[in-house]
Amino acid sequence: MTESTNLTAFARLKAGKGASREERRQNRLPAVIYGNGETPDLISLCPREFTKEMYKAGFYTRLFNIDVNGKSQQTIVKALQLHPVSDKAIHVDFLRVTSKTMVTVSVPIKFINDTLSPGLKRGGVLNVVHHEIRIVCRADAIPHSLDIDLTGVEFGHAFHLDVIQLPEGAKLASADKGYTIATILAPKVEAAAAETK
């Protein structure tokens, strides 16, 4: 079951960059809710409340119940624009969903049991090629993360997409089913020797 978070928002009337900038000057975060065959809703959020949620785990895999003037809408975060320097949110796109909606989301990969890997214990490096995988699943069944067990893996081992156990009803968004997610690299002995000189 997907986690959900409640947010309160105000409706705003004008679209466009001028109106969005005006919202930011008023210390509000401009956002939009669209999808599900309904007309888009222009909203503004409290930036402080939103930023607190943004840095919590599972930000892209959580449902947000947005209360706009008393009417609640179930959404997920579709796109997030950040300021390049301050990393503050400057605009958010929410996708309106129902329990039946199939959504494409990026789910983070979690590597578990790293202490039980002989390769990592002997100084190997877990080289993560893909930190997240795009899957298609029901909006109310988005997994929090996808686990990869590192128990017993040695140097040179590569994890491909086929090792991931997807939850029921979920499928991969990509047509390429064999790409590498992570590899265990051997420690660089030559580089280490040069470094100590």
């Binding site: 840095y55 919590k56 983070p108 930190h131």
Partner: peptide
Amino acid sequence: IVSRIGVE
């Protein structure tokens, strides 16, 4: 210093 958003 920056870190990834939405990851534990």
